[in-house]
Write a protein that binds this DNA or RNA. Structure first.
Lengths: 216, 216
DNA sequence: GTCTATATCTTGATAGAC
DNA sequence: GTCTATCAAGATATAGAC
């Protein structure tokens, strides 16, 4: 799900207690795999090519990730960790949260490879028994829940109209971000994804908020 | 592109001057291929399975469509013809046109296979040198142009606010329909795509239209 | 138009040495 | 941890008979 490659905080130097070389190998493989999945999709990308990209033979790569599915799931898990920051912007109020989505979109324009990989995987996962099916389903549900909760909170604070269907709006927001990402990926040079999402979000806020009594 | 598997009018009995059997063979192959692409994606689907589905051997199928790409392009062309009706709803004014999108969404819920096939192809076509790349790009551009033109017309008629960025709204609408389709495909039983798009479109109309002078 | 048979390529994965 | 060698499966496509 989009919104969501996410505003992940760069978690570089993740030296575990592994040998520095071993850990960087894994990371290098994951990066190379993302690169390949981004340009060819998961199904079509050959892990032998990923191996070459990091200067390894195929069995060499399979030592780190026994199967292609393992490699995919490792990428998804990694993204899970990195984008946790994006999902629970925690203490922000509903308005700041919504505007934060614009910032996520802005950040995403700096990582088109990642965005494309996840957009393609998202669609691929709609096919029967795709290994990433559950992950993307969970991600969508979690995202919808979080966004809806922010809106519900806004209602409780008296800032959002009481008759707003929060889960529906949450789905809308997710759909819009995913859809705009697709249009942007198709034409990154000339399509202004950030402007588009900003226009939508700002209008949405005006539609949802309790109208200021200036005019009443 | 979405919006757009489209509100295609069922174009059944398309007996050309071919032998009835020959024509129905082609049609049967196209239908079976769409079915396969819908569940497995284009890349992953094996045309040998498509052949089996229609009771043909692989070379038998390749007699009608020499390559797999030919088969894909034939499906896209067919859809082009059928959904022309959806693209230029012709004489409808901007409001009727927008509300018509809800009807398209409603119709689309009756053909999930087709919608899924096109959603997956749409994303697959983002990969490097995918055979359907140009088709989906053209479709998106054409759709955006048509929607924007409707809005421009609304401005000229004094029904739409003059400061509306028509191409931007058009992109928004396309993105929303595509995105909602994805959410719906992931959970067709419980996600109300029609309700979601209706909520969005109706709000959008209120935002775009020149406010009625009742309150002024 | 359709089939059998075959060619060729690519992929993911394993065995076993170093 | 990494390699060479190898396998087995599955895909598209062609040749040529009927």
């Amino acid at each position: 799900m989009a919104v969501g490659p996410g505003a992940e905080i760069q978690s570089q130097g993740k030296r575990r207690r592994n040998s520095a070389k071993g850990a960087s190998r894994r990371e290098a493989i994951l990066a190379a795999a993302m690169h390949r999945f981004s340009r060819e999709g998961y199904q079509c990308a050959a892990i032998a090519d990923v191996a070459k990209d990091v200067g390894l033979s195929l069995p060499g790569l399979l030592h780190h990730f026994p199967t292609k599915v393992d490699l995919l799931l490792a990428i998804l898990d990694k993204r899970d960790l990195e984008s946790t920051a994006a999902i629970d912007i925690g203490q922000a109020n509903w308005r700041a949260f919504m505007l934060g989505l614009i910032q996520i979109a802005k950040y995403n324009t700096s990582i088109p490879e990642v965005v494309r990989a996840f957009a393609i995987l998202n669609a691929e996962s709609l096919t029967q028994s795709h290994p990433a099916k559950a992950w993307f389903s969970n991600r969508a549900r979690q995202l919808q829940t979080n966004i809806a909760a922010k809106l519900e909170d806004g209602i409780l604070r008296g800032e959002v109209k009481r008759d707003v269907d929060c889960p529906a709006i949450a789905a809308e927001v997710i759909a819009m971000m995913d859809g705009l990402q697709m249009l942007w990926l198709r034409d990154p040079k000339s399509f202004d994804m950030v402007g588009a999402i900003a226009g939508y979000i700002e209008r949405l806020i005006l539609d949802l908020e309790v109208s200021s009594p200036i005019q009443a």
